[in-house]
Design a protein around this nucleic acid. Structure first.
Lengths: 182, 182
DNA sequence: CGACAATACGGAGACTATCTCCGTTTAGCA
DNA sequence: TGCTAAACGGAGATAGTCTCCGTATTGTCG
């Protein structure tokens, strides 16, 4: 990749990150190009579709998911607390951008989605937490990680769209957690 | 209202109903106007915003909600079955149009939403079911009808966006139901 | 019945966003 | 330094939203 290409690529991703965070995933791409100081052609060459740009913005975020999961696994307290803590972290993780929860949860299980790899990272992260709790025989085992991701993702999507405070989300996560406990 | 105005109004609503069902709430309004045989001006005079049109389309649907709730209340079986049955009906009710679950659940608790009255109908319907189950002391009482609506609505939104079969939705509803039982 | 005022109609067009094409510019190598 | 492949970016095609306003229709009243 040529130096000027990389420069522009990085600038676009950086501008897009801010734009998505502040204005949501449906913000104007031409505006992002303008803010990044490039023409729309440049943006669309690097990122043929909106999802390709979203995917690029999420690259750095993946490391953060791994790290957060590790922390959640060492969380003190009983199984219910570990699960709830993970749920809260999960909601926070997928809510970094406006529209993120709906986007990510909607793409889950979709083989063809450009952000598929990100969803898999999340899903396996959740799987690790569930496995750990199942070792303790604390969580029912007729529910898949995908279903759990959808349950919590659904709550996050609603919270995101309705602009709910974390305190308002908590009771709903508790219902799901209780429903999952043995 | 003049006779010709009513004629056009009704045609627009009818065409919109089909369009929303088939192509989702983000389908072109100009196209709906064209299909209804009117100019865009006519559509936008009757329905200044997209939500106003959605609201009109939902008018008839309200009766259906009441009716469905009555049936759910007389459902045979234990409390868990009654609750699950209601959840499934609820999901079906808000999924009549593509994008409906997200739209309706997102508007819940929003005082200014044009479809606010529809949400309240749904919420009070859910409240009736919960009240009935609480009489039997079957359901925990630290959860509000609004929270339950958001939990189930979140699942419906995810299912709608991912195109899930009812059979795939059921286990998730079970988790929420179990989490709500005492 | 005929005329008129109020009401409704609908299309042209302004505005905004998406996305492409292609002539121009530039980086990096020989 | 000069060449070529790569990258740039803006003009413009396409499509959706929404408004304005001249035209047409309705229904009433004399």
């Amino acid at each position: 990749m040529r130096a000027d290409a990389k420069r522009n690529y990085d600038r676009i991703v950086e501008v897009a990150r801010m734009a998505f965070r502040e204005r949501g995933y449906d913000t104007s791409l031409d505006q992002i190009a303008k803010d990044a100081g490039v023409g729309p052609g440049t943006l669309y060459r690097h990122f043929p579709t909106r999802d390709d740009l979203i995917d690029a913005v999420m690259k750095a975020w993946v490391d953060h998911v791994e790290e957060t999961t590790d922390k959640a696994l060492t969380h003190e307290g009983g199984p219910r607390e570990v699960l709830l803590n993970w749920f809260e972290e999960y909601v926070r993780l997928i809510s970094v951008h406006k529209g993120g929860p709906a986007k990510i949860t909607g793409a889950m299980g979709d083989e063809a989605s450009p952000i598929r790899s990100k969803c898999q990272v999340l899903q396996s992260a959740g799987g690790r937490v569930l496995d750990r709790l199942r070792e303790e025989d604390a969580v029912r085992d007729d529910v898949t990680p995908l279903e759990v991701a959808r349950l919590v993702g659904g709550i996050a999507a609603v919270a995101d769209q309705s602009g709910l405070e974390p305190a308002a989300v908590r009771p709903m996560l508790e219902v799901v957690a209780d429903g999952l406990m043995k």
